[in-house]
Amino acid sequence: MAKRIDVSDLNIYYGSFLAVADVSMTIEPRTVTALIGPSGCGKSTFLRTLNRMHEVIPGARAEGKVVMDGVDMYGSDVDPVAVRRHVGMVFQRPNPFPTMSIAENVLAGVRLNNKRISKGDAQDLVEQSLQGANLWNEVKDRLDRPGSGLSGGQQQRLCIARAIAVKPQVLLMDEPCSALDPISTLAIEDLIAELKDDYTIVIVTHNMQQAARVSDRTGFFNIAGTGKPGRLIEIDDTSTIFSSPHEQATEDYISGRFG
């Protein structure tokens, strides 16, 4: 089910401003790729181009290629909504729909895609998705209660359950633990390790220890200064990036000399 993504010569704009320049990378299936770098260097902007969320912003656009299993996701005949169905996203802050129950939150994406589903199939999908997010045992007796009543870490796992319920092939995570306590963060990291058996995962994180713990490959983004575009400086196996990076800027960032 997981897919490979090949990005080549990607330039990302907000109006006439070039925000991210000349990104090329390969994201392998069933791996976790972490994106690190200082604030404002384009990591989250780049992440949003992988499921065409970037172009939801007025005036925003991307030029270049993002190819998933041979299909250019920016091709003229490709439906952006279909792309987002295959490439799910989990945001920085947990965002369960406050008026919906836990079960309704899980099914929200499926129903948004106008998929008809029987009551029995819906119940099975809720259980399957919550099991996949390691949340089922904690909430199975209160599925009809509001998702907003869960703890922060549980809410984030509920959002992951909602994302995987539509059966995507790729999961994007934009700093999914930045608003969570250490115990909830550990639960999400353990979950990421399990999910990569079935999904291709790309995670933006400011926590370099987290990148070292959860990822197979790490990409370092940097920016030359205010008004300059962010760039991918290097990407390699995580062990290589953290032990013997090829670029001095990467070494400086990881060692804390800047950023």
Score class of each variant (00 low, 15 high):
242 F>N: 10
166 V>W: 12
118 S>T: 14
137 N>D: 15
244 S>A: 14
99 T>R: 02
49 T>Y: 06
258 F>Q: 07
13 Y>S: 14
86 H>N: 15
217 R>S: 13
249 A>C: 06
244 S>D: 14
57 I>W: 11
194 E>A: 13
24 S>H: 07
67 V>A: 07
3 K>M: 14
108 A>W: 06
228 K>I: 00
126 V>R: 00
121 D>C: 10
234 E>H: 03
217 R>C: 04
86 H>Y: 09
211 A>S: 03
32 V>Y: 11
242 F>Q: 08
48 R>S: 03
22 D>P: 10
139 V>D: 13
98 P>A: 12
25 M>A: 15
65 K>G: 06
184 S>K: 05
45 T>M: 09
51 N>W: 12
174 D>E: 12
234 E>N: 05
207 N>G: 03
255 S>K: 11
13 Y>V: 10
89 M>F: 13
5 I>Q: 10
153 G>E: 12
205 T>K: 02
170 V>W: 08
146 P>N: 10
182 P>S: 09
25 M>K: 05
172 L>Q: 13
80 P>R: 01
95 N>L: 11
26 T>V: 15
63 E>P: 00
237 D>G: 14
42 G>A: 03
235 I>N: 06
226 T>M: 11
101 S>N: 08
243 S>P: 02
69 D>S: 03
9 D>T: 07
235 I>P: 05
224 A>K: 09
88 G>L: 09
259 G>C: 03
45 T>I: 10
47 L>W: 05
73 M>F: 09
82 A>F: 12
228 K>H: 07
63 E>F: 00
207 N>I: 00
92 Q>A: 02
66 V>S: 01
115 K>W: 07
68 M>L: 04
250 T>P: 10
160 I>W: 02
85 R>F: 11
96 P>R: 08
96 P>Y: 06
49 T>M: 02
79 D>W: 02
250 T>C: 09
121 D>F: 09
144 D>V: 02
240 T>D: 15
13 Y>T: 10
179 A>E: 00
90 V>T: 03
146 P>G: 07
187 A>N: 05
68 M>R: 10
248 Q>C: 00
142 R>K: 14
217 R>E: 13
187 A>C: 08
234 E>C: 10
76 S>T: 13
40 G>Q: 08
113 N>W: 04
42 G>R: 04
23 V>K: 00
144 D>S: 11
32 V>E: 11
78 V>D: 07
41 C>A: 02
134 N>Q: 15
80 P>V: 11
230 G>R: 04
200 T>E: 06
